[in-house]
Design a binder for these strands. Sequence first.
DNA 1: ACTATATATCGAAACCTTTCGATAGGTGGC
DNA 2: GCCACCTATCGAAAGGTTTCGATATATAGT
Lengths: 345, 345
Amino acid sequence: MATIKDVAKLAKVSISTVSLALNGSERVSADTLKRIQDAANSVGYSPNPLAQGLKAGRSRMIGMVLADLANPFYSQMLKQVENLLIDHQYLVVVASSRGNAKRERAILETLASQRVSGIILSSHITSPEDVAYLKSLKIPMVLVDHKVDGFAADFVGCDNRMASAMLTERLIREGHTRIAHLAGVEGLWTAEERNQGFRATMAAFGLEVDESLILHGDYDGDIGYKQAMRMLVRPDKPTAVVAANNVMALGALQAMRDLGIKCPEEVSLTAIDDAPWSKVIEPKMTMVVQDVNEIAEMATRFLIDRTTPAGADIPPREHILVPQFVLGQSIASPVKAASFQDSAP
Amino acid sequence: MATIKDVAKLAKVSISTVSLALNGSERVSADTLKRIQDAANSVGYSPNPLAQGLKAGRSRMIGMVLADLANPFYSQMLKQVENLLIDHQYLVVVASSRGNAKRERAILETLASQRVSGIILSSHITSPEDVAYLKSLKIPMVLVDHKVDGFAADFVGCDNRMASAMLTERLIREGHTRIAHLAGVEGLWTAEERNQGFRATMAAFGLEVDESLILHGDYDGDIGYKQAMRMLVRPDKPTAVVAANNVMALGALQAMRDLGIKCPEEVSLTAIDDAPWSKVIEPKMTMVVQDVNEIAEMATRFLIDRTTPAGADIPPREHILVPQFVLGQSIASPVKAASFQDSAP
DNA sequence: ACTATATATCGAAACCTTTCGATAGGTGGC
DNA sequence: GCCACCTATCGAAAGGTTTCGATATATAGT
C-alpha cells in the first residue's frame, strides 16, 4: 500500500507538506496542492488508519455491545446503526456480551484499548465496581435499551413500565385476573422496569400478584419455552401471559402449540417488542412495540454529537420512546376461555 | 492508559526488554521476567493494539461483510462467528453491503486499509474488474454462502442446486406442474444455482418452465411480498412456489394471507433456509435448511488457518454442506386444491 | 590470567501519521 | 539597499510497539 512517503517523493515535497495539503491546510500554495493531489491519486494513496489512530489516540471505530446478535430486535438495531455510521466514515466493531456482566466488562476493556471513538452499549452491568469502571472510561458512550443505575450517560430506550402496564391493563379490562409475567433477566434494568409496570398495574386494579407466576428468563433462546411450559402444565395455570420480549413470547407460543393449548381461547398472550415474524404467526400477537429504527437513529446522533470537540460538555441526554400498542388476536376474555374448556371433550 | 514505557521505568529495565519479556522470549532471565510481570500488573499495562498493528502491518480484527444484517440467516452466522473469533482474540468489524457490488468494494477497500487480519465475505461481486480487485487483495479471505466465479478462495456454503432440486422434486411428485420460483438477485451465484436446480429438476420430469413465474427479489425485505403478490393475483397463478430464501417465503406467506389464499390448500409453499419463526407459523413450512452454525464454524476455522504463518500456502478449500429436508404442512397436492376451489362459494 | 563464548540487556530503527516551531525565500515599506 | 514581515515549505518529535544488531557482563576453557 502506498504511504505518504511515496506521495511526497512523487510530488517532490516533504512529508509534512503532503499531510498539510491533504488535510486542507491554508498554508499551502495552490499549485503544490494540485501536484500533491495528483501524486496521491496516481499512487492510490489513502492514509493508514492505524497510524492516524495511534497519533490521535483514537480510531475511527465505534463499538457496539449487545447481549444477543441473533435477537431480531438487536440485529435490526445493529443494521441501522451500521448504515448510519458508515456514512460518517466510522466502522462498527460488534461484540456480544451474552448478557454476562463479566464478559461485557472484558469487551469494554478491549474496546477501550482499541481506542474506539465511541460505544453503543446495551449494558447488563449491575455491580458497583462495574458501574465505577463504566464511569472511569473516558469514551463517548450511549446506552440503549438498558439504563444503568448510578451511571449518568446518554440513553435511548422506551418507557418500559408503560409498555408492560399497557398490556397488563388491557388484559385486566378484558376480564383477566390471573395473569403471568414471563420476565427478563432478574436484576436487569429493563426487566425490572417491565416487572414494575406489571405489578403496579395489577395493584392499581386491586389484583394480587401470584409470585409463582412471575418467571424470569434470559436472552439465550429456549428458556422462554421452558418457563412457559412450567407454568402452563399447572392445574392453576394463568389465563393470560405478559411476555417481556419477543423471544420469550415465541417460546411461550411454541409451548402452547406443543401442549395443545389454544391461544387465545384458553390462554391469552401478549408481548413487548415486535419481531419480523409477527405478521405471519397465528394468532396475530397483541403487543406493544418500540420503534427500533428510531432508537438506532437517536443513539447514533447522540454518539456522533459526543465525538465532536464540544461533545464532552454536553450534559447527559435521554430519548424515551413511547411504546405503541398493536392490537392482534392473541387476547380473548377469560370467560370465553372457561366456556371453551367446559365444552371440550 | 499505561504504556510499555511506564512498565520499563517501574521495572528499571529498557523498553525492549519489557517487550521481549512480555512476548515470551527465551533471552530474558527469570527474575527480571518476574519483575517486569509484576510491574506490568501493577500499572495495569496492556499493549496498544494500534501500535502493534502499525508495526506488524496487520491488526487483530476480522472483517465480516454481509448483505443484510437483519436477515436471521446472516445475523445467526455473525453471532456464531463473533463467539468463535473472540476466543482467538479477534474483534469483528461488521459491514453491510446491502447486496450492492459498489458498496461492497468500498467496504473491502476500507477493511484493507485497516489492515484486518482476515475477511469473511458473502460476496455480491460479479464484474471482472471487481473480481480482479478481489484477487489483488493480499488478505486471508473466506467466502461464505456465495461463491465468486473466477476467484479461487476458501468457500463454505451449501449445495444450492441440490437444495432447490429437493423442493422442486417433492412438489412435482406431489402432482404439481405449474410451479413458480421466487428467486434471489439475478446474476448472483447462489440465486443462479438455486434457479438452475429448479430448472434442471423441472426438465428432468419433462415439465416446462413458465418464465413469467420466475420472479427475482433481493435481500431488502418486502420485495418477496410484492413479487409473490404479482404472481398470486394472476388468474393462471401457480399451484406451488419454491422460495429461494426465508425472507422471500415470509413475504409470500404474508401475501397469501392478505389475499385470503389458503396455504397449502390453494397454493403450496416451500422455502430454502430455516428461520427462527418457522416453528410457530401456520402452516409449518416444508423447507430445506442449511446448518448456519456449521457454516460459521468452518468459515472461522478456514480463516484462522489462513492467518497462521503457513496459511498462505494452503490451497483453496471448500466445505459444501448437504442441505437437509424438513417436512412441514405447507404442501398439498394440486388436485385437492382444485376441489377446494370448486367447493368455495 | 587471558581469550572465546554464551547470556542478559540495551539502543536504535522502523511502522505511518500529524503538528508545531523553524527556516528559507520573497515582497513591501522606508 | 536594508529591515521587517509574510508565506510556503520543511524538519523533527511524538505516538507505542517490535525486532535486530550491538554491548556489557559473566562463565568456561586453556
